[in-house]
């Protein structure tokens, strides 16, 4: 009986997540062409072939990967940097820097608009300093092809997240191991890069995977701030989904299945990184 206790404890959570996983089956079936409600009863790979060959998909996929990669990289660097800066502060008074974690995405999108748009703050500052004649003279930073606004919004939320993951570990490592490194001839800078940072890397890499996965698959920010072409993958997928023609549904489900494939990849990467994290942490003394 006791052997089943952990499973019993896990039952509710497995039930809920199970709902999620179970619900994916329908979509999978639909992507393979099986959608009785629309009169489609034959399994076929034709929808996959069609979508995978479609340049719209290529564009969206590339755009989403680009947005995710750039924002995740910038956020990781920024989060590490911010943590390093805060390291020296006596009071871990990072409340302010953790605030963006609590801000809804839509509001952060609005921030991007009021700061970066052509009628935003930076545009007005530029006008005051450089004498621009009209808003249009300010470069397009929101809803632009480079995704500047989207990346800004992701980074705004993600740097604080990375920082919150890293800072405590950094503080812990920094006390003992940095002292040892200093007595062995390392300057504070070298001690940071050769000891502190490597010891934080496992935690950083798990954070990286999380923010990458999120930026890749989230809807709100690209929807509010992204360019109209190419659309980020989730936005494009949803557009396909909203098509009134039910027979178009399988196309949308192919999009979803592809995104899910990436999701599974992210899960695998995270598990691998997590294994390394718990492996190393055994050795890092408290």
């Amino acid at each position: 009986m006791r052997r089943f206790l952990p499973y019993g404890l896990l039952l509710p959570v497995l039930l809920m997540v199970g709902l999620l996983v179970f619900s994916l089956l329908d979509g999978l079936l639909q992507s393979l062409g099986y959608f009785p409600a629309a009169g489609l009863n034959n399994f076929t790979l034709s929808y996959y072939k069609a979508v995978l060959g479609d340049s719209t998909l290529h564009g969206s996929l590339a755009y989403s990967l680009y947005l995710a990669l750039v924002s995740a990289l910038l956020s990781t660097l920024g989060g590490i940097g911010l943590s390093a800066l805060l390291l020296r502060c006596k009071k871990p008074d990072s409340w302010l820097f953790r605030l963006p974690i609590a801000m809804p995405h839509a509001v952060v999108a609005f921030f991007a608009i009021i700061l970066l748009s052509q009628t935003g703050l930076f545009s007005r500052l530029a006008a005051a300093l450089m004498g621009m004649e009209e808003p249009g003279a300010f470069p397009l930073l929101v809803q632009d092809k480079a995704g500047f606004g989207v990346i800004f919004a992701y980074v705004f939320k993600q740097i604080p997240y990375v920082m919150s993951v890293v800072i405590l570990l950094m503080r812990r490592v920094s006390g003992t191991y940095t002292e040892a490194a200093r007595t062995l001839g390392a300057s504070p800078r070298r001690a940071f890069f050769s000891v502190t940072l490597p010891l934080c890397m496992p935690a950083v890499s798990t954070a990286f995977i999380i923010i990458f996965a999120y930026a890749f698959g989230a809807y709100e920010l690209p929807f509010l701030l992204g360019a109209t072409l190419p659309r980020a993958l989730p936005v494009q997928a949803n557009m396909e989904f909203l098509s009134p023609d039910l027979r178009h549904r399988p196309y949308a489900m192919v999009y979803n299945s592809l995104m899910l494939l990436f999701g599974v990849l992210f899960i695998a990467l995270y598990l691998a990184a997590f294994k390394k994290l718990t492996g190393d942490n055994k050795a890092v003394k408290s």
């Binding site: 490194a181 010891l199 890397m201």
Partner: peptide
């Protein structure tokens, strides 16, 4: 500390977990 010619053996040892034995010694 890095400019002083002293070496410390701490009570809690403090070997660098991310380096092998020889890389610790050679640090």
């Amino acid at each position: 500390p890095e400019k002083r010619n002293t070496a410390v053996l701490f009570q809690d040892i403090r070997l660098f977990p991310h380096l092998s034995v020889e890389d610790n010694v050679a640090y």
